[in-house]
């Protein structure tokens, strides 16, 4: 009896075949919550600080809970960022090249996966190389060429490379589609071919539907990476299109244009709360997209089985 009781408590505390046991569960949650807090700390810090009044900022007693709800920082940041216009620009800059890049990369990945041709392995090697080569080693001649063609400050300077499979991180998407189409059974393709379908038609009717999860992954990551990219967008789009991250990079300058330092009262000086409000507004659209799509985001990555082998 005593031994049974001890065995029972042991299994409750330390688990058995069907459950992890109390000790392990508690440790697991404690660890995940602690790591999760450290992980989210910059975001929490940003959000809380962005709601602080100038008084709260100076008051060392106010750490995590602002004394009042103060939307003033956001009002300023919205004006400084010129939010609606820049948001629209950002959405365009992220969406248009992403859609094109995804479509093109899927075609290239399909060609690599389903056909044998001389030089195929060399090409896969070169695709990998395009991922390794730093943008710095190619960007200046590209920029000068676009300048000659009058495409600087124009969306085409991002669309054209994307159209040719040389967009931002295109190599990753080509490899994702390569893997996806490699896993597709040949039987389907052969059946369609017996029915007299052309290669293009086989791609559109057999390949494309089977790769739906990969398309979702590619579009999402592509949008995120184009949205966050500032190095290339500053070089290619400066003077023509301003995206939100570009505007954030020169937040101080834009702020002082709107609120010249000598002329405004102390409370309207630029402080970290306004800056962080601007930063938060910058990532807000992506946060919204992420929380709306996060089920797809996580599940489709699992379904495409990107393990990169």
């Amino acid at each position: 009896m005593n031994r049974d009781l001890r065995a029972y408590w042991t299994s409750v505390l330390f688990g058995n075949r069907t459950s992890y046991g109390v000790v392990f569960t508690v440790v697991l949650y404690a660890l995940l919550i602690a790591i999760g807090f450290v992980y989210l700390y910059p975001l929490l810090f940003m959000f809380v600080t962005s709601l602080k009044t100038p008084d709260d900022l100076l008051n060392p007693m106010v750490q995590w809970i602002p004394t009042e709800f103060y939307p003033g920082n956001y009002e300023k940041a919205l004006r400084v960022l010129d939010y609606p216009a820049k948001l629209l620009a950002s959405i365009t800059v992220a969406a248009v090249p992403s859609v094109i890049q995804t479509a093109v990369c899927s075609v290239i990945g399909y060609g690599l996966a389903r056909y044998n041709f001389p030089g195929k392995n060399l090409m896969i090697g070169l695709v990998l190389a395009t991922f390794i080569i730093p943008a710095q080693s190619t960007v200046i001649p590209q920029m000068l060429t676009f300048k000659d063609l009058g495409l600087l400050g124009n969306l085409s300077s991002l669309v054209l490379p994307a159209l040719a499979g040389q967009g931002f991180n295109s190599a990753i998407f080509i490899l994702i589609f390569y893997q996806t189409f490699l896993a597709l059974p040949k039987v389907l393709e052969e059946a369609a071919r017996l029915d007299g379908a052309s290669d293009l038609k086989i791609f559109l009717t057999v390949g494309l539907p089977a790769a739906a999860p990969s398309y979702i992954v590619a579009i999402i990551f592509s949008v995120v990476w184009y949205w966050n990219e500032t190095y290339l967008t500053v070089i290619f789009l400066e003077g023509g299109i301003q995206t939100l991250p570009m505007q954030l990079s020169k937040f101080v300058q834009a702020y002082e244009n709107l609120y010249p330092p000598g002329t405004v009262n102390v409370l309207d000086r630029l402080n970290e709360a306004v800056k962080l409000a601007g930063t938060f507004l910058n990532i807000l659209p992506l946060l919204v997209m992420y929380f709306v799509m996060q089920r797809w985001f996580v599940e489709s990555v699992e379904r495409t089985g990107i393990t990169g082998e």
């Binding site: 999760g36 992980y39 989210l40 700390y41 910059p42 975001l43 810090f45 940003m46 600080t49 995120v224 949205w227 966050n228 990219e229 500032t230 190095y231 991250p245 570009m246 954030l248 990079s249 937040f251 970290e272 800056k275 962080l276 601007g278 930063t279 910058n282 990532i283 992506l286 946060l287 997209m289 992420y290 929380f291 996060q294 985001f297 996580v298």
Partner: peptide, 23 residues
Amino acid sequence: TIFFLPVVITSGPVIRELTEQGA
């Protein structure tokens, strides 16, 4: 959701602001 979040928001200017404010 928490652990994939940074993938979405990691961009140069955002990181710069957060680092400057000691976050």
